[in-house]
Design a protein around this nucleic acid. Structure first.
Lengths: 251, 251
DNA sequence: ACCAATTTGTCCGTATGTATG
DNA sequence: TCATACATACGGACAAATTGG
């Protein structure tokens, strides 16, 4: 181990320096959320680099969610929303071969805790949204696809009502992964009544601001979910199938 | 609202199509983790677009963590690691003005649950790492910076030992945000002995595979943390200060 | 409704430093 | 050591879309 005088300095490519510089301007508040970015040529002039370089830097920021398009022409500074982070995190999880058991184990901890907090903070609007969601479930018969989405939405509303951003960020990627899991289970269920009934009970408890009952029913609901999964014969310790986003490069 | 025959079709810029196409090749397994990407000129030729376009597409993938540099010249397909996702998520949280209370509230749920699982699965190597971590803490005196990092590392090791990737992904961004919080607290503490003692007890419980005690001590440890924060006089419902990454664009 | 200026998307070519055989 | 391949960055160009008058 030779004592060296100089730290090893990391040479960043110009496009990364550009991206970092713009990011700095954002986090330091010189560029605020909603502001439109200057034109590429303008940025290039200010930084003294070529426009292509600026473009590559902008792509980094674009993907990171810090800036995003409004219309087709203008880039705007945006608050990265949990959703966008979630898709990446969700993809990472599925690439890491996460199992149903891991997913369920974590949800079994968070979802009831979230329900408990939601009972304290839920607004009337959110209660209405829940009731509407339940009504939609009752109306949608045995259409699996739609039902799973409504189920996920139901839990999302509750997470929002918990008034805790950290919980929301934590559970978002998980919620996306429940989509394939849900689609595995539901076709094997004769009637969705049991699911809907649990949602009704949860909604009722939230209405009454009863955090104990809300938490209990959420726990029961989640336990049910695992039973349903096991009943399909799937191995909970095998990696989940990917979210199968139906997007193919167009053109 | 006129009924229209055609769906509104989203025109993607070529660079996004390129990125999506490469991503498809990765998730569908034609490109595996560790594979090196073809040269930019080669990709350009195959897709029939210009090299500059390919470059912009590569920047998107680079930021998303799907590909990353090895050496300065070659891009390699990589498994996005939780760390990289975490920095973005962490930044998002601080931009969303998350409060200490939210952070702590969520951690109070997850950390004890993680400790409980770690008690069942921890390996001898990980136990050694914990002991080494504690030894380093004892040695580091009152150097706040170093102490906070060791503290975060301690919890990271336990998260790894939980053998649950979902928990790890969930808590990673939170762990980053605890850095500023920790730096707020520690200077006001006379001795770190109480923290170290808690870590010792947790480590001991994990050694004995005692999940109840591990969970209890983790809970106590977290509660202590909040008390420490309150004792500084800081308002737990005010947004945390940003992680203050000391990076300024060089050059 | 039309024109002019601006801006983005894409492309071509080239120079330079570096890694690999 | 030399040759080749490659990534980085720059200069310039043009069509299409958008915006503002």
């Amino acid at each position: 181990m030779s004592d060296s005088i100089f730290d090893k300095l990391t040479i960043n490519p110009a496009y990364r320096v550009v991206a970092d510089a713009i990011e700095q301007n954002i986090v330091e508040g010189r560029l605020k959320v909603g502001d439109r970015l200057p034109a590429e040529t303008e940025i290039a002039k200010q930084f003294g680099v070529h426009r292509s370089t600026v473009r590559e830097g902008l792509r980094l920021l674009e993907e990171s969610g810090l800036v995003s398009r409004v219309g087709r022409m203008t880039l705007e500074v945006r608050l990265p929303h949990f959703r966008e982070l979630a898709t990446r995190a969700s993809r990472a999880l599925s690439m890491h071969q996460v199992t149903f058991q891991e997913l369920w184990d974590a949800s079994m901890i968070t979802e009831p805790a979230i329900a408990e907090r939601a009972a304290e903070h839920i607004s009337d609007d959110e209660l209405d949204a829940l009731k509407q969601n339940i009504a939609a479930m009752e109306a949608c018969g045995q259409e699996t696809e739609q039902f799973v989405k409504l189920d996920i939405e139901f839990h999302d509303i509750i997470a929002r009502a918990s008034r805790n951003k950290v919980f929301r960020l934590m559970r978002e990627p998980i919620s996306l992964l429940f989509l394939p899991a849900g689609q595995t289970i539901l076709p094997t269920i004769k009637t969705y009544e049991r699911v809907i009934e649990a949602h009704r009970k949860i909604c009722q408890a939230l209405s009454a601001r009863d955090k104990v009952v809300a938490q209990e029913w959420m726990t029961r609901h989640m336990a049910d979910f695992r039973r349903g999964y096991l009943r399909t014969g799937a191995n909970p310790d095998k990696p989940l199938s990917t979210p199968s986003e139906g997007l193919v490069a167009p053109r």
